[in-house]
Simulated assay, not measured.
Amino acid sequence: MDLFSGTIQNLENALGRADIKQKVLTNNIANIDTPNYKAKKVSFRNLLDQETSNLEAVKTDYRHVDFTGSGDDYSIVSSSDTSYQQNGNNVDIDKEMTDLAENQINYQALVERMSGKFNSLKTVLTGGK
Protein backbone atom coordinates (compact mmCIF):
# COMPACT_ATOMS: atom_id res chain seq x y z
CA MET A 1 0.00 0.00 0.00
CA ASP A 2 1.38 3.39 -0.99
CA LEU A 3 0.81 5.67 1.97
CA PHE A 4 1.20 8.95 0.11
CA SER A 5 -0.12 7.89 -3.31
CA GLY A 6 3.00 9.29 -4.99
CA THR A 7 1.97 12.92 -4.47
CA ILE A 8 5.01 13.91 -2.44
CA GLN A 9 7.37 12.23 -4.90
CA ASN A 10 5.66 13.96 -7.82
CA LEU A 11 5.96 17.32 -6.07
CA GLU A 12 9.61 16.62 -5.29
CA ASN A 13 10.28 15.79 -8.96
CA ALA A 14 8.51 18.97 -10.07
CA LEU A 15 10.59 21.03 -7.63
CA GLY A 16 13.73 19.43 -9.04
CA ARG A 17 12.74 20.34 -12.58
CA ALA A 18 11.97 23.92 -11.53
CA ASP A 19 15.39 24.09 -9.84
CA ILE A 20 17.16 22.93 -13.00
CA LYS A 21 15.26 25.47 -15.08
CA GLN A 22 16.14 28.22 -12.58
CA LYS A 23 19.85 27.40 -12.87
CA VAL A 24 19.78 27.48 -16.67
CA LEU A 25 17.86 30.78 -16.74
CA THR A 26 20.18 32.47 -14.25
CA ASN A 27 23.19 31.19 -16.20
CA ASN A 28 21.76 32.78 -19.36
CA ILE A 29 21.21 36.09 -17.56
CA ALA A 30 24.72 35.99 -16.07
CA ASN A 31 26.17 35.58 -19.58
CA ILE A 32 24.21 38.43 -21.17
CA ASP A 33 27.43 40.23 -22.15
CA THR A 34 29.57 37.18 -22.96
CA PRO A 35 30.64 37.27 -26.62
CA ASN A 36 29.26 34.41 -28.74
CA TYR A 37 27.33 32.92 -25.79
CA LYS A 38 24.24 31.05 -26.92
CA ALA A 39 21.21 30.95 -24.63
CA LYS A 40 20.28 27.54 -23.29
CA LYS A 41 16.94 26.10 -22.32
CA VAL A 42 15.80 22.97 -20.55
CA SER A 43 13.79 20.50 -22.56
CA PHE A 44 11.59 18.11 -20.62
CA ARG A 45 10.30 16.53 -23.80
CA ASN A 46 11.87 13.23 -22.72
CA LEU A 47 9.49 13.11 -19.74
CA LEU A 48 6.51 13.36 -22.04
CA ASP A 49 8.02 10.68 -24.24
CA GLN A 50 8.42 8.38 -21.23
CA GLU A 51 4.81 8.90 -20.17
CA THR A 52 3.48 8.29 -23.66
CA SER A 53 5.57 5.12 -23.95
CA ASN A 54 3.23 3.58 -21.37
CA LEU A 55 0.24 4.21 -23.59
CA GLU A 56 -1.04 1.46 -25.78
CA ALA A 57 -1.78 3.10 -29.09
CA VAL A 58 -2.32 1.77 -32.55
CA LYS A 59 -0.94 3.71 -35.47
CA THR A 60 -3.39 3.59 -38.33
CA ASP A 61 -1.20 5.65 -40.63
CA TYR A 62 2.58 5.82 -41.09
CA ARG A 63 2.44 9.61 -40.57
CA HIS A 64 1.16 9.29 -36.99
CA VAL A 65 3.47 10.14 -34.09
CA ASP A 66 5.33 7.24 -32.48
CA PHE A 67 4.54 6.53 -28.83
CA THR A 68 8.06 5.61 -27.78
CA GLY A 69 10.41 7.43 -25.46
CA SER A 70 13.83 7.04 -23.92
CA GLY A 71 16.70 8.95 -22.37
CA ASP A 72 17.23 11.22 -19.39
CA ASP A 73 14.56 13.23 -17.63
CA TYR A 74 15.67 16.41 -19.36
CA SER A 75 18.21 17.83 -21.72
CA ILE A 76 19.77 21.27 -21.99
CA VAL A 77 19.77 22.61 -25.52
CA SER A 78 21.12 25.81 -26.98
CA SER A 79 19.86 27.77 -29.93
CA SER A 80 22.79 28.65 -32.15
CA ASP A 81 20.88 29.97 -35.15
CA THR A 82 20.12 33.46 -33.77
CA SER A 83 22.08 36.47 -32.61
CA TYR A 84 20.53 39.47 -30.84
CA GLN A 85 23.71 41.39 -30.15
CA GLN A 86 26.68 42.54 -32.22
CA ASN A 87 29.03 40.20 -30.32
CA GLY A 88 27.15 37.05 -31.41
CA ASN A 89 25.28 36.64 -28.11
CA ASN A 90 21.64 35.56 -28.44
CA VAL A 91 20.35 36.06 -24.88
CA ASP A 92 17.07 38.00 -24.94
CA ILE A 93 16.98 39.57 -21.47
CA ASP A 94 13.24 40.30 -21.62
CA LYS A 95 12.41 36.68 -22.41
CA GLU A 96 14.83 35.36 -19.79
CA MET A 97 13.43 37.61 -17.07
CA THR A 98 9.86 36.65 -18.00
CA ASP A 99 10.73 32.95 -17.91
CA LEU A 100 12.55 33.44 -14.61
CA ALA A 101 9.54 35.14 -13.00
CA GLU A 102 7.21 32.43 -14.30
CA ASN A 103 9.51 29.71 -12.97
CA GLN A 104 9.72 31.40 -9.56
CA ILE A 105 5.92 31.58 -9.32
CA ASN A 106 5.68 27.91 -10.30
CA TYR A 107 8.33 26.95 -7.75
CA GLN A 108 6.58 28.87 -4.97
CA ALA A 109 3.25 27.21 -5.81
CA LEU A 110 4.93 23.79 -5.64
CA VAL A 111 6.52 24.62 -2.27
CA GLU A 112 3.15 25.76 -0.89
CA ARG A 113 1.49 22.57 -2.14
CA MET A 114 4.23 20.45 -0.55
CA SER A 115 3.85 22.38 2.70
CA GLY A 116 0.09 21.84 2.62
CA LYS A 117 0.59 18.13 2.09
CA PHE A 118 2.91 17.91 5.11
CA ASN A 119 0.50 19.97 7.22
CA SER A 120 -2.28 17.55 6.32
CA LEU A 121 -0.11 14.61 7.37
CA LYS A 122 0.79 16.39 10.61
CA THR A 123 -2.90 16.97 11.35
CA VAL A 124 -3.64 13.28 10.78
CA LEU A 125 -0.73 12.15 12.94
CA THR A 126 -1.62 14.45 15.83
CA GLY A 127 -5.29 13.56 15.70
CA GLY A 128 -6.41 17.01 14.60
CA LYS A 129 -4.84 18.80 17.56
Rank of each mutant, 00 (worst) to 15 (best):
D33W: 05
Q104G: 06
S80F: 06
D2F: 09
G88T: 11
E56M: 07
K129A: 11
S115F: 01
N90Q: 06
I8D: 12
F4S: 13
G16R: 12
E56W: 04
D92I: 06
Y62E: 10
S43H: 02
Q108N: 14
G71Y: 13
V24R: 09
V65W: 05
R17Y: 14
N87R: 10
G116E: 10
D81A: 07
K95T: 00
E12L: 13
T82Q: 06
N89V: 05
N46W: 01
K122Q: 15
M1S: 12
K23P: 02
E12Y: 15
I32R: 08
N87M: 11
A18I: 05
D33P: 10
D73C: 01
F4N: 13
L100I: 05
T34N: 07
I8F: 15
E102Y: 07
E56N: 11
I76Q: 05
N54D: 10
H64I: 10
D61H: 15
M1L: 13
V111N: 12
L47D: 07
I93R: 03
K95S: 00
S83E: 08
K21L: 00
A57Y: 13
D99W: 08
Y37E: 04
V91K: 01
Y37R: 02
S79K: 09
Q85F: 12
Q108H: 11
M1I: 13
H64D: 14
L100H: 03
L25Y: 03
T82N: 08
K129C: 02
M1G: 13
S83V: 07
V111G: 04
R17W: 15
D81F: 08
F4D: 10
